[in-house]
Computed example of a mutant assay.
Amino acid sequence: MFKNSSSKFFVSIIIPIYNDEDVIPRLINEVLIHYKNSELYEVIFIDDKSSDNSIDILNKLLLNNSYSNYKLILNQKNIGASATRNVGCKNAKGDYVAFLDSDDAWHKDKINIQIKLMQQTNSFISGTCHAIISPNRLKTEIDTIYKEDQIHFTEIKWPSILFKSPFCTPSVVIHRSVLDKYKFNENFRYSEDYDFWVRSSYEFKTIKILKNLTFTFKHDYLSNSNSLSSNLYLMQKALTLVRFNLIKDQKYSIIYKILIITSIVFEYFKFSIRFFKKFKLKTSQLVINRNLK
């Protein structure tokens, strides 16, 4: 089993909440139970002006399960994911900050594994691989025991990060010193996480743990879109804006700026492939539905 980190640490777990009444019970009963009332953790919930019963359900579950190491912050208006995470970071007291979305989950030793490797490698940002699983596999995945020699990592470096986002937000743990200098860009509704990683990793050593320690249950949101290309287009637009902002920043060399431009071209190539795959899938579904009528 993976041993505890040799150095003491205090971690703030930041969880945005927005109309999540259906997933909050799993979050409290199956994921956060591993951090309940620990002196090493605080859990910060930030509700982004939910219109359902999320807060009532959350308060009831926290009370019934006798949680004490948590804060609940209520946004006065809906401000979006970036600003909500910034609110959480501002109120966090931890040496490290971990991000978790309400509908995602972690391996029970995830944070300890990450922080131990961060301390060993003098890294300031870390993420993990993640897997999409069915809810009935959650307990098995969470409780899997890993030996230390089973955990491997790679360093995330410039300029490779220009061509691919290294990890998803719920997998990330960040040292406090990074958040003292960088914030999530509140002008972005899409790709705000990639914008943060690409800017901060230029200055702070970043690693990725090559093990699925983060789990998601989300379906492909594009399949529920009223417009086939709407989300793809908005994501692509945001990714392009992230890179244009990098080009305008004087701290990057001419060589890096050429690579940034190259990454824009590469990203549009990937966008075209994703769009046509979705178009083909949507067309096939329409044909099948028509034949069934």
Rank of each mutant, 00 (worst) to 15 (best):
F2W: 11
K3Q: 15
I14W: 04
I15K: 04
Y18R: 15
N19K: 13
V23C: 02
I28H: 10
E30T: 15
E39S: 14
L40V: 04
E42Q: 10
D52I: 12
N53A: 09
S54Y: 14
K71F: 05
L72R: 10
L72F: 08
N75L: 02
N75M: 03
N75Q: 11
N75C: 05
K77N: 10
S82K: 07
A83G: 03
A83I: 04
C89W: 08
K90P: 04
K90L: 12
A92I: 05
A92W: 09
D95R: 02
A98K: 13
D103C: 07
A105F: 08
K108I: 04
K108D: 06
I111Y: 08
I111T: 11
Q114I: 10
Q119D: 13
T121C: 01
N122H: 13
N122L: 07
S123L: 03
F124L: 12
F124G: 06
G127E: 07
I133E: 01
I133M: 00
S134A: 12
S134I: 10
T140I: 09
E141C: 02
E141A: 01
E141G: 00
K147V: 02
T154Y: 09
E155Y: 14
E155P: 05
I156G: 01
K157W: 08
W158C: 02
W158R: 13
I161R: 03
F163I: 06
F163Y: 15
S165L: 09
S171T: 14
R176Y: 05
K181S: 11
E186G: 01
Y190T: 02
W197C: 07
S201V: 03
K205L: 00
K211M: 06
T214R: 00
F215V: 09
T216A: 03
T216Y: 03
K218R: 15
L222G: 06
N226V: 08
Q236P: 05
L241H: 07
V242L: 01
V242I: 15
L246G: 07
I247G: 11
I247V: 15
Q250D: 14
S253D: 09
L259P: 05
I260G: 00
I261C: 13
S263M: 00
V265M: 10
E267F: 11
F271W: 12
F275H: 12
K278I: 06
F279G: 06
F279E: 14
L281H: 13
S284R: 07
Q285H: 14
I288L: 06
